[in-house]
Design a protein around this nucleic acid. Structure first.
Lengths: 210, 210
DNA sequence: ACAAAGAATGAACAATGATTCAATAATTCA
DNA sequence: TGAATTATTGAATCATTGTTCATTCTTTGT
C-alpha cells in the first residue's frame, strides 16, 4: 500500500468541486442554464471536462445542485425578512419586496430560477423550491390568522397564489426577449411595480383595502 | 406546361396539414411537447416525416402553431366568460373558474401550456399568450374601475398578478411529477382550490372581504 | 398516353453536446 | 527512489433527433 487519500488531497478536491460550482453559478448568472456548456464551465474552472464528472454524476446533477444553491440563498433572504420584528403584514410586505428587488437586481439568474425552461431534474428542484417559498409564506399567514390580523383561510393555497402573483409579475420584466439588449442606463424604477404586487397580495390575503 | 395546382390538390394539402396539426395536438395532449417526436407525429398522421417539412418550417414552428392553437381556445373561453352579462366581479369569477376547471380537466395539455419547459420559439408564444390573458383581465378590471366596483389601480399589473396566482395554483396539481400515476377514481373535488383562488384574486383586486 | 411539374417518401445525414476512457500525471509512503 | 494508487486530461465517442434530398409516385393538361 502506497497511497491513501490524505487530508490535503481531500481539501484540494473539495476546492475543485467548489470552483466548479462557482463557475457554473457564474455561467448561469451570465446566460441561464441553457447557455451553460460543460466545456465552458470546465475551462472557466481550469479543469478538464472529464474532471467535472468526478465531482458530479451528470450535467443535470450539477445544474440541480447549483439551482438549489442559488434558490436557497433567495429563500433564506425571504425567511430573514419574514423573521424581522413587526406585524405580519409588514413582514410579508418586506419579504415580497426583498424577493422582487433581488430578482430585478440579478435578472438573468432570477429568470433562470423562476422561468427558464430547464431539464427535468432541475425542474423538479424548481417545484420543490416554489413549495419552500410557499411554506414560508404559509407560516406567516398562519401567524397572521392566529394574531387575528389575517382572516381565516386556506393558508397553503393563499401562499401559492402569492408566490404565483409575484413570480408572474416578474417574468415580464425578467424575460430575456423583453430584456433583450438592456439599455445602458437601465436603472428602471421598479417601485410602482413592486408596490402593485404588494398591494394585490396583501389585499388578497386580508381583504382589506390599502 | 402540364401541371398546375388545382383546387382538389390544394384541399388535399390543406387536409394533410390539418391532420398533422391534429396529431401533434394529440401527442402533446398525451405527453407534452417534450415527448412529441416528429416521427411519431408523422406515423400518427399517416405521412412521411419529410412531408411534415413541406407544411412546417421546423419542429419549433409546428409546435409554436399548436401552442397558439391550443392556447387560443382557452383564451377564447376566458373571453367568453368575461363577455357574459353580470357585474364585473361576477364575470371575473366566472372567467377564473372556467380557466381553472378546463385546466384541471385536461391536465397534461394545461401543464404543457402553462409550465412545461419548451423550446425558445414556443416559450415566446407562451409569453405572448400570458399577455393575452392578462389583457383580457385588464380590460375587465378597467371596466370595473369605470363602474366603480373596483378601486382605481394599475389594471395591467393587477391582471398579471391574477394570471400568476391562478397559474401557480394550478402548477402543483397539474405537474406530472405530482400527478405521476393518477389514481383510478381521480375525480378530486377541486372546488375548494378554485374557490380559494377566486377569493384571493377578487380580494386582491377589490380590497373587499368576501 | 405522355411529358412536365409537383408532392411524398424515408433512409441517410448532420449537428449538438454530454459523456467516456485510455493514456498520463500526481500523490503517497515504505 | 519507486511501486502502488488515485486524479486528471481532453480527444474521441456516443446518443439523440431534427432535417435533408435523391428517388419514387401522383397529378395535370395536351
Amino acid at each position: 500500500m502506497a497511497y491513501r487519500e490524505t487530508e490535503k488531497m481531500r481539501q484540494r478536491k473539495a476546492a475543485a468541486r467548489q470552483r466548479i460550482a462557482e463557475c457554473t453559478y457564474q455561467c448561469v448568472t451570465e446566460g441561464g442554464f441553457r447557455n451553460a456548456r460543460i466545456t465552458r464551465i470546465a475551462k472557466l474552472a481550469g479543469v478538464a471536462t472529464g474532471t467535472i464528472y468526478r465531482h458530479y454524476e451528470s450535467k443535470e446533477d450539477l445544474f440541480a445542485e447549483i439551482f438549489r444553491l442559488a434558490t436557497q440563498r433567495e429563500v433564506d433572504k425571504v425567511a430573514e425578512a419574514l423573521a424581522t420584528p413587526g406585524s405580519v403584514t409588514e413582514r410579508l410586505e418586506n419579504a415580497l419586496q426583498q424577493f422582487a428587488e433581488r430578482a430585478l437586481k440579478g435578472p438573468v439568474m432570477a429568470w433562470a430560477l423562476i422561468a427558464e425552461p430547464v431539464d427535468p431534474k432541475v425542474e423538479e428542484e424548481r417545484l420543490a423550491y416554489r413549495k419552500a417559498y410557499a411554506n414560508l409564506f404559509e407560516q406567516a399567514i398562519r401567524e397572521g390568522i392566529d394574531e387575528g390580523c389575517v382572516p381565516d383561510q386556506d393558508a397553503h393555497q393563499s401562499s401559492t397564489c402569492l408566490v404565483g402573483a409575484i413570480a408572474e409579475s416578474l417574468v415580464g420584466p425578467l424575460s430575456p426577449t423583453q430584456n433583450g439588449q438592456a439599455k445602458p442606463g437601465d436603472t428602471d424604477n421598479h417601485d410602482p411595480l413592486i408596490n402593485t404586487i404588494i398591494r394585490f397580495c396583501i389585499q388578497g390575503l386580508t381583504g382589506t383595502r390599502r
